[in-house]
Design a binder for these strands. Structure first.
Lengths: 239, 239
DNA sequence: ACCTGAACACCGTTCAAGT
DNA sequence: ACCTGAACACCGTTCAAGT
């Protein structure tokens, strides 16, 4: 908590010359945390594993971060910094198209890093880049003829949709797939077989869409849903 | 894992007559797990706390459940059984209105139990009631003039939206609120003050909607977003 | 200012043994 | 079939002490 507003940049450019004592920085702590999350997921990010990676003891982490929860929040937000940077120039086209572009950038980032789904855009108070991304999406609605309430609701709907669908897809894949024990293809085939085995009278819808399920890709399905939501916003704005 | 398909009902109606040895059932394990989750959240559900509540040792839980993850999945699904039951008769009105009714029932259940957000509708293979709820929503799209792909995408979008927005709202409230240390009202005021303190040139959207934020309610905002998505589906179906 | 050492109070999970 | 006892191998977090 006391370090929350600490400068993010490394104060001394080079890591201290002494070699017996370990020395980190907020940047390196977060960078290694992200690396650990990418490699082994949320469960893999332990304070002890992180400290070992940085060459120090567990207690050293607590100088930079108030605890594991804040670490997770900050690690997620540090990734969102990149997403925000990548959409900084968006805002000159059709407002709805621009919202789509931002939403897709955010979604793609979460697909690449499934652990992000649970920690991105959680707390705009602690996560400055989450706030900026929320702001950025909202700014596009400012260019639509809507009321303030409609803009607020539309923006929250977009964010909720992105996070929700992405999170859903993140843990749609069980551990066997993430650990490389099973390919996505094999997993889909197994799930498809399960669905086909269901009683057709009891599960008419499942049977109706099982072929689509077998061949679907997350990105395409996400875009399709996003376009439905955007169509609703466009209709409301009358543009 | 071996117990996954065990009958859910208590085999012997009365809990064994012997009083020195603890004796549970899958039902009681899940019921106490839900109670624990309601009282103290996901972090509060430990195998040891659950076992103590049931009057036995930690190892006894493993006869009913393969581990903590499966316990969480099954506890969530056991709550969804009630949600499914409550919407069983839905399906005679306008299809879009029926989808709305189911989505709202699901959302309300997650608002009541924030921990549900992270575990509901996660794995239709392990969670039978998640599957039935997904099927139920999908069945309404069967009554709309859409292609199978469109129905699949629309249904997944609805589910993703509900889960996403609900999950978002679930952890929007920090621990101080959940622990009763702070009221929701006070929290909203604090967050609102933070937002007003932001630079207006840099955060025009935040300033534009801060008054709406201060007075918003989760349920109303969810319905507004849901209606945008439903409007998009209606437009696609042309009904 | 920033890190070490060492401890505290927990965890989930396993497994032989009991009933 | 279902539970106990006891252990294993971890956790996050704290804090006095060092540099």
């Amino acid at each position: 908590m006391p370090t929350r507003n600490e400068p993010i940049a490394d104060p001394g450019a080079a890591p201290g010359r002494g070699r017996t004592r370990a020395s980190h920085s907020l940047d390196s702590v977060l960078a290694e945390a992200v690396a650990l999350l990418d490699e082994s997921g949320v469960a893999g990010l332990t304070i002890r594993a992180l400290a070992a990676r940085l060459g120090g003891g567990p207690a050293s982490i607590y100088w930079y971060v108030s605890g594991r929860d804040e670490l997770l929040d900050m690690a997620a937000d540090s990734v969102l910094a990149g997403v925000f940077a990548s959409v900084q120039d968006v805002g000159d086209e059709d407002p709805i198209d621009d919202i789509r572009a931002i939403a897709i950038a955010l979604f793609d980032a979460i697909v690449d890093r499934p652990w992000l789904g649970a920690y991105a855009l959680r707390d705009t108070g602690t996560q400055p880049h989450s706030l900026r991304l929320y702001e950025k999406i909202g700014e596009q609605t400012l260019r639509l003829p809507l009321t303030a309430t409609q803009r607020f609701n539309a923006t929250s709907a977009i964010v909720g949709f992105v996070i929700g669908v992405a999170a859903d897809m993140g843990h749609e894949l069980p551990e066997e797939v993430l650990s490389g024990e099973l390919t996505r293809q094999e997993y889909l085939e197994r799930a498809t077989a399960d669905w086909r085995a269901l009683d057709e009278g009891e599960f008419p819808f499942i049977h109706h869409i099982v072929d689509e399920f077998a061949e679907h890709t997350d990105r395409v399905q996400f875009r399709a849903g996003l376009d439905l939501l955007l169509a609703g916003i466009r209709l409301q704005a009358g543009v």
